[in-house]
Design a protein around this nucleic acid. Structure first.
Lengths: 64, 64
DNA sequence: TGGGATTGGGGTAATTCGGGAC
DNA sequence: CGTGTCCGAATTACCCCAATCC
């Protein structure tokens, strides 16, 4: 069920999404709280789909 | 168990898979981090199988 | 043969990694 | 317990242009 390429994000992009430090995103990945793949050079890439899911999934209340 | 030809990818295609610059893919090949074939003109071609293996092989964490 | 798009190479900023501490 | 910052080192991104690909 995965024939479509999954958009990948850099640490900095994910960091801006969550308004945290890129280092924090790295910690999340190291702790296995967020999925990640590594480039042969060692840099991490994150799934945009998963990040947005985490963002929306953790949403509480909101309706005014 | 290898009777089927291995699909070859260009630098740009590999770059999109890893969300990196095509130049970076070239550096991987030059550094021997990834296998590559050269066209008589000097351009490189990469194995799709190997690229996807690297992608999946580096997969980490996610949701438990 | 012509033409648009991509690639390779060199050089230089910007980002990321990793550890360790507060 | 989670996060932001410091450091040095490595990796990656963007600039140029000539050559190659289709």
């Amino acid at each position: 069920m995965n024939h479509q390429p999954d958009p990948l994000l850099t640490a900095g992009e994910v960091a801006r999404m969550f308004r945290v430090d890129p280092k924090t995103v790295t910690r999340w990945a190291a702790a296995g709280r967020i999925g990640s793949i590594r480039t042969p050079g060692g840099h991490r890439r994150y799934s945009e789909t998963e990040c947005r899911a985490l963002l929306e999934g953790s949403r509480t209340g909101g309706q005014a």
